[in-house]
Design a protein around this nucleic acid. Structure first.
Lengths: 339, 339
DNA sequence: CTGAAAGCGCTTACAG
DNA sequence: CTGAAAGCGCTTACAG
């Protein structure tokens, strides 16, 4: 590999001068600069950012730890973060923990080891506390996105899960569904517990009964694979309660797809046999005229905003924490149908 | 930050011994190892991988340059690559060039500068040659995924675009559509030209006329945004040819969505007014009973295989090039409908 | 405007 | 089994 020494020799200057040219320092004469630039081009020199980082202490890299790289909510979020990081001339390293605390820890340590300038994280759950403390101990600026962990104070960009769930549930109730099943995720995940609260609040508000037997839980993370095969049975059980629910609220897009598939296997049509509502966008629904009410979150803005706030934090480590709560856009069946 | 020197002092050994413990070298007595491990834990030491990379010359990082981080084909591919890289104890840095040659170049230089151990790339197009040569000049092992550039020889994992397009077109012809429009991408992109060839081959085989006026081109990359508004007009023009096409073949999932939206704005139903076929998966179609014939590529395997081949290349730089061609799975309407 | 010296935090030989 | 020396490719002070 060509190094700064090779360039310096060819241009007949010190490595210091080459370094100045690379870093666009003002104090280099035009003639010298031209000679150095020529040498760089002739040798096809690309600065070694590893060496630069070691001495400067900055890597121009941001770590992004999300739950799942195949979930469109997170990839759109990642895209927003990527674009924003690019504007700040930083690179993004994306990792996904699959809601697995151990995997999360591995990635956090890898990113600390890589000396990222900052970290954006969707924590795997409330048990992430110990992992998050490691980040704090190393003094690395970080921000929560999508999910928070209450016992750790930090900047965060989250959705308004509670009110979104409240609105979706209210909508179903107004449609005449007085018994609504819910397929939730683990309650130690912030968004799951908030959405369950929103669901319960709406039921209470409408004077509808909150029935524990209408609440199903789907595990995320390591145990999730085994849960899917059991889902048909659970959904069947849910729908055979007395009185039976006529609608189901799926906590997010992944769960919604699982529920849809299950209903299909059970020979039930949406929304004729069972109405469905869910959080987060399942991409081409608007095209499909499928009658599902959804609370669509501005995923791109989640990523973009987090990066911007993170850079403000890096610039000023002692400023008060920022809390951004982004409202979901509601798409309520049958209103979206007329389009 | 805690360094190896701090650990060495606390454990009363040399930095060399600490290094040996970190790297699981055999030749350390159990007592010494225990003392070092204790010191590391007490000080919350995380090795600085920047420094390690500078001296070892390896970063344990693979660069993945894809077209678009929000296209499900590429994110699934990225997920396959991520999982495979993880098994090899490597990290993945994902970048997207948005089919923009300049952006591609920026990222290639950034990854060379970061001294990645290898590179997986979906080239932006045939004009990527100069960018790819930079990679070669620096002796960085790389592999093409999804698209190749003919003038550069390298390992590659691609789909069988030609035969997939041939099959989709043949299917439409067998359904009685003797005039089929096609919405293609730029022909300097490998997959686009291959798919167009497959379409033409099928028409020729069936004795159908290849009509240039039934071929539409949508730009990718920097010019793409302006093309979408014009699409309605172009589609309208396409469908008013004489004789008019009764089916449209969209070159990929992104184009398919644009075409669907356009048809909808024009008040045309799929497949009653116009039949539609496309390449690559538009996620929840199987759920929607939407009658689109698709050639679904094994995106996860694209990513997984590329990483595996790349590591073989890193281990043995002089072995002959590997060429993996993955067949798409055909989902032909109305056959998928009975499910 | 330019350069010599020191050092970032590790590992690679080389000794013993 | 353990360590002293040198160096990876840069940049940060400090001089002039």
């Amino acid at each position: 590999m060509v190094t700064i020494v090779d360039v310096a020799k060819r241009a007949n200057v010190s490595t210091m001068t080459v370094s100045r040219v690379i870093n666009h320092a003002a104090s280099v004469s035009d003639a010298t600069r031209a000679r150095v630039l020529l040498a760089m081009r002739e040798l096809n020199y690309v600065p070694n950012s590893i060496a630069r980082s070691l001495v400067s202490g900055r890597t121009h890299t941001i770590g992004l730890i999300i739950a799942d790289l195949t979930n469109s909510f997170f990839t759109t979020l990642a895209r927003g973060a990527e674009d924003a990081a690019h504007k700040h001339l930083h690179r993004l390293v994306i990792c996904n923990h699959d809601d697995d605390i151990d995997k999360e820890r591995t990635y956090i340590e890898a990113l600390i080891s890589a000396r990222v300038d900052g970290l954006i994280i969707t924590p795997a759950g409330n048990d992430s506390v110990e992992n998050l403390k490691i980040i704090q101990q190393h003094g690395i600026p970080f921000i929560f996105v999508d999910r928070i962990v209450h016992s750790i104070k930090a900047d965060h960009v989250v959705g308004d899960s509670m009110s979104g769930a409240y609105e979706l549930t209210s909508h179903l109730l107004r449609q005449g569904h007085s018994h609504i099943g819910i397929v939730s995720g683990p309650l130690n995940i912030h968004t799951a517990s908030e959405r369950l609260k929103g669901y319960q609040a709406a039921l209470a508000e409408f004077g509808a009964e909150v029935r524990q037997e209408l609440v199903l839980y789907m595990p995320y993370g390591p145990g999730a694979d085994t849960a899917v095969p059991e889902l048909d049975q659970q959904i069947r059980g849910l729908l055979s309660q007395n009185p039976a629910p006529t609608a189901i609220f799926a906590l997010n897009n992944v769960i919604a797809v699982q529920v849809l598939r299950s209903l299909r296997r059970l020979g039930l049509a949406v929304p004729d046999d069972v109405a469905l509502a869910c959080f987060e966008e399942v991409d081409p629904y608007e095209l499909m005229h499928l009658d599902i009410s959804t609370a669509i979150q501005p995923a791109y803005a989640f990523g973009e905003e987090s990066v911007n706030i993170l850079f403000r934090r890096i610039d000023d480590p002692d400023k008060p924490f920022e809390s951004v709560v982004l409202k979901p856009r509601l798409q309520l069946w049958p209103s979206h149908r007329k389009g």
